[in-house]
Design a protein around this nucleic acid. Structure first.
Length: 411
RNA sequence: GGAGGGAUACCGAAGUGGCCAAACGGGGCGGACUGUAAAUCCGCUGACUUCGUCUUCGAAGGUUCGAAUCCUUCUCCCUCCA
């Protein structure tokens, strides 16, 4: 109990707290985390950190990585990290952040998704230090009596405090009873895991607080909520999500990842640096002031971001190639290096058929529109009549818009 | 259980017998421009054998020369009452 030890302890708590706090939107309640950390360090008992995921989709997006990254930091600090696959909950459909009821999934879909999900997660998390748990383990055996006991702790009025429930209720949108159970289940997950910390996006606040409430109800110490900001998607306004199509997937090829990054509005550029890269806060501040003063070109900053992201999810070489591709195709308007080659018969055909049969257009009408809109080029020459006949030749390059190219190969 | 309101294209939302392949906004896609696949401006946005034809307005029937618009039944959603 010497003072020197206390000082060391204080320093360690401060160190961990600083790492944990970077980029987070909110820690609820604030003071409790440092107490938990102090106790954990003093007794050499790692904290139990929980992250619940909903195995509803296939591709992880950069949006998901924000919270996974935080999870990784806890891992690196030596805490016990539990990745909770909501296999049971996914069959209910969580309404969080949604304006309408989500579809319920079948068990097969959920298990399938869970597998692809965990495969991707380990691009970020350390597999050997991650415990994967499924909430069907404890939720599936629940009896109706258990459910009644669990739900008797809440009132309808309090459930309706949750923003999306409230909005849907007041806007006369459908709100099913079963959706009310979601927060209970997620909350009970924390009881089952005896979680010390639960991570999530700010849209998860209600559900995570529910965990606190239920833990108290079940006589456990209460978990701390660490809430991370919701990453805006490519449009710069709405949450990055698969359903909105404004996302960058972590499995995307380098060229697309780079290009999509370049398409984000300048307004969220720095936010991406802060939430998605390990660039220090000082360096980010330098970029900010550089852009403000005009000494740093926003485009160059964005190219740096795009490079860093590709390098992180692929590697430096891939990032270099993606950057090169971007420069040739978009900055200089030249042809890309690797155009897909398509085999074709030597018969003449109309430009419309050529576009449609090779998926450069979704339908003949679409192809027609592209031609009329001036988007179509054959060997660099604009084609402006839909009935224009083309005689395919090997190495002929057909372009529809700025991003779609094919190179023909006559058979 | 009773009374009433609603369902329109990717989304939101007009249209209430022919002028509706359906206003307008968003999104998407193209073009121009640029500092980038930012911003801004312009165009397009059901399909096809495209100066014409065919299939769309919750589903199925019906009335009519003609229906997204009227009638019947059904499905789903919302409100109020119980």
């Amino acid at each position: 109990m010497s003072t020197e030890l206390d000082v060391q302890l204080d320093q360690e708590v401060a160190r961990q707290l600083k790492i944990i706090s970077r980029g987070v939107a909110e820690i609820v309640p604030k003071g409790e985390l440092s107490q938990k950390l102090r106790k954990s360090i003093a007794t050499k008992t790692p904290l139990i950190v929980k992250l619940g995921v909903d195995p509803t989709g296939i591709d992880l997006t950069l949006g998901h990585t924000v919270v996974l990254q935080k999870m990784k930091q806890f891992q690196d600090l030596g805490h016990r990290v539990h990745l909770l696959i909501g296999d049971f909950t996914a069959t209910i459909g969580d309404p969080s952040g949604k304006s309408e009821t989500r579809k319920q999934l079948t068990r097969e879909q959920v298990l399938e998704n869970a597998k692809t999900y965990s495969d991707q997660v380990f691009k970020i998390l350390d597999r050997s230090k991650t415990e994967i748990v499924y909430n069907s383990d404890w939720l599936a055996p629940f009896t109706f009596a258990d459910v009644i006991q669990l739900t008797s702790t809440m009132t309808v009025a309090r459930m309706l405090e949750r923003e999306d429930f409230h909005n849907r209720f007041t806007q006369n949108l459908p709100l099913s009873i079963h959706e009310f159970f979601y927060p209970f289940m997620q909350g009970y997950d924390s009881v089952a895991l005896k979680a010390d910390v639960e991570l999530g996006g700010t849209d998860q606040k209600f559900n995570i607080l529910m965990g606190r409430m239920l833990q108290k109800e079940y006589g456990q110490p209460q978990q701390v909520c660490v809430l991370l900001p919701i990453l805006e998607g490519l449009d710069g306004v709405q949450k990055m999500s698969k359903s909105l199509g404004n996302y960058i997937g972590i499995n995307e090829d380098p060229v697309n990842m780079y290009g999509k990054t370049m398409s984000i509005p300048d307004s969220i550029l720095l936010r991406y640096f802060e939430l998605l890269t390990d660039l220090s806060l000082e360096e980010i501040e330098e970029l900010r002031s550089g852009i403000a003063s005009g000494s740093v070109h926003p485009r160059d900053a964005k190219m740096k971001l795009a490079w860093m992201l590709v390098a992180r999810f692929h590697d430096g070489d891939a990032a270099d190639r993606a950057e090169q591709h971007f420069k040739t195709v978009f900055q200089k308007g030249a042809l890309p290096e690797d155009i897909p080659v398509v085999s074709i018969a030597a018969e003449p055909l109309s430009i419309v058929q050529l576009l449609t049969t090779n998926n450069l257009a979704t339908s003949n009408s679409d192809a027609r529109r592209l031609v009329q809109g001036g988007a179509v080029k054959v060997d660099g020459d604009k084609v402006d009549r839909p009935d224009q006949q083309i005689v395919p030749q090997t190495d002929m390059v057909v372009q529809a818009g700025k991003r779609k190219f094919i190179r023909l190969k006559v058979e």
